[in-house]
Design a protein around this nucleic acid. Structure first.
Lengths: 212, 212
DNA sequence: CGAAAATTTTACCATTTGGTAAATACACGA
DNA sequence: TCGTGTATTTACCAAATGGTAAAATTTTCG
C-alpha cells in the first residue's frame, strides 16, 4: 500500500502520455529544457496545455520522465558488453551499437547531451545510482582483459569516454557535421569504418599487420 | 567610410563591454541562450539591466558577440597545424592543444556546444564562412600526408571529428565525467596520455583496412 | 570652471509562460 | 440508457522577462 494513486492507466491515458512524451522529446531535444515551452509541446502533441497538465504535474515532470525513461535505452549497449566474449569483438561491437544509437535516436542523444551540458540538474542521482555502477563494472571487465594480455594496456575509463564522445558527436553536433560534410549517402558507412579503425588500432597497437 | 557609427570606444566602454561579455559567458555557458536571463547577466556583471542594454542591442547581440569572438580562439589550434611539419607530431600536438583548450576554456567549449546542439541558430553563416574553408584546407593537408605515405590511410574528415569529440568531451560532459572519475590530480595527465595513445595508434599502422 | 556628451539609474511596459479553477464534454460499465 | 468518473476546454492569473523612456548623474574637454 505504498502507492498513493495506483489506479491502472486507461487506454486513453497510455496513449496520451505516450503522445505527450514523444512531442516533448522533439521539443526538448531541439530547444533544451528552458528553451522549450509547454505551448510548443502542447501544439506538437495536438493537445491543449491544460490537458497536458492533466497528465503530468508540470514541465519538469515531463522532462524528468523522459530522462529516466531514456536512461535504460541509453545504457543498454554498455550492458550488453559481454565479459565472456572476445575482447576486441566486444569493444568494437559496442562502438557500433553506440554509433547506431546516435544515428537512430538523435533526439534522445541531444536531450541527454543538453542535460549534461547544463550540469545534469535533473539527473545527478540517476548518474550516481545507474550509470556509475555500470561504468565501474565494465571498466573492471576491460581491466581484466588487459591483465590477461588480451588487449593492449589502455585506460578503460578514458576509452569509454572516447567511445561515447566520438559516437554521440554525430548526433549532438549534427548541425556542424552537416555543414562540413557534403551530403553523401556513404557518410554513415565512412564514420563507422573510421571509428572501427580508430579503436581497433588502439586495442592492438603492436600486433602484426594482418589478422582475420 | 563604410562604418555607420565609428566613434572610437572610450576606456569605460571597453571595460564594461569586456565585463559584460565575461559575465554573459558565465551565464550562457551554464544555462544556454534561452535559459540565461538579462537579469542574471546584469547581476553577474555588477551592472543594471538597462545599463547592459546601453552597451548591447539586446540579449541576442551579446550572444552573437560572444560567439563570433570565440570563433577565432576556437579555430586557432587547427590553424596552427603545419603542412610542413612532421605529420604525427603535428596531429598529436593538435590533439594536445585542443585538450588544453577544453580544460582551460570550458565555458567557451560549452557555449559553443550549446549553440551547435540547438542547431547553430546564431552561427550558421560563421560555420560556412570561417570553419568550413579551414576544415577543408586541413583535410587536404592530411590527405596529402596520406598520399605521401607519411601516415596511415585514414579518413581526414572523421579524424578531425574524433579529435574534436574526444577533447571537447572533457569540458562539455564535465558533469558526467566528474561523477564517473574519482577526483584525482592525475586525471588530466591520464586523459592526455589516453588520447595520445588513441590517435597515435591510428596514425602509425600503415596497413590498409580490410574491406569485408 | 562649465557645458556638452557619455553613462547610469529609476520607473515602467508588453509579452510570454508555467500553471490553475471551474465548467463542459465524453466514455463506459451497470 | 443513464449516471458516474474520466477527459478536455475555456477563461484566467501571477511571475518572469526582454526591453524602453526619460530623468539624473558622471565624465570629458575646451
Amino acid at each position: 500500500m505504498s502507492e498513493v494513486s495506483a489506479k491502472k492507466p486507461s487506454r486513453i491515458q497510455r496513449r496520451n502520455r505516450r503522445v505527450i512524451l514523444d512531442a516533448a522529446l522533439n521539443i526538448f531535444a531541439q530547444h533544451g529544457f528552458r528553451g522549450a515551452t509547454l505551448d510548443q509541446i502542447a501544439a506538437e502533441a495536438g493537445l491543449s496545455k491544460p490537458n497536458i497538465l492533466y497528465y503530468f504535474q508540470g514541465k519538469e515532470d515531463i522532462h524528468v520522465s523522459l530522462l529516466s525513461q531514456l536512461m535504460e535505452t541509453w545504457l543498454d549497449p554498455l550492458v550488453e558488453l559481454d565479459p565472456q566474449g572476445d575482447p576486441e569483438t566486444e569493444i568494437l561491437d559496442y562502438v557500433q551499437r553506440k554509433l547506431d544509437m546516435a544515428r537512430d535516436l538523435p533526439r534522445e542523444s541531444r536531450l541527454f547531451a543538453g542535460e549534461i551540458l547544463q550540469g545534469a540538474p535533473h539527473m545527478g542521482p540517476h548518474l550516481e545510482s545507474d550509470l556509475k555502477p555500470l561504468f565501474d563494472e565494465k571498466c573492471a571487465v576491460i581491466s581484466g582483459w588487459i591483465d590477461q594480455g588480451k588487449i593492449a594496456a589502455l585506460d578503460p575509463q578514458h576509452l569509454i569516454f572516447s567511445i561515447w564522445a566520438t559516437t554521440q558527436h554525430y548526433a549532438d553536433f549534427e548541425a556542424q557535421v552537416s555543414v562540413l560534410l557534403e551530403e553523401e549517402a556513404a557518410n554513415r558507412q565512412r564514420a563507422s569504418n573510421h571509428l572501427r579503425s580508430l579503436f581497433s588500432a588502439l586495442l592492438r597497437p603492436h600486433t602484426p599487420p594482418q589478422s582475420s
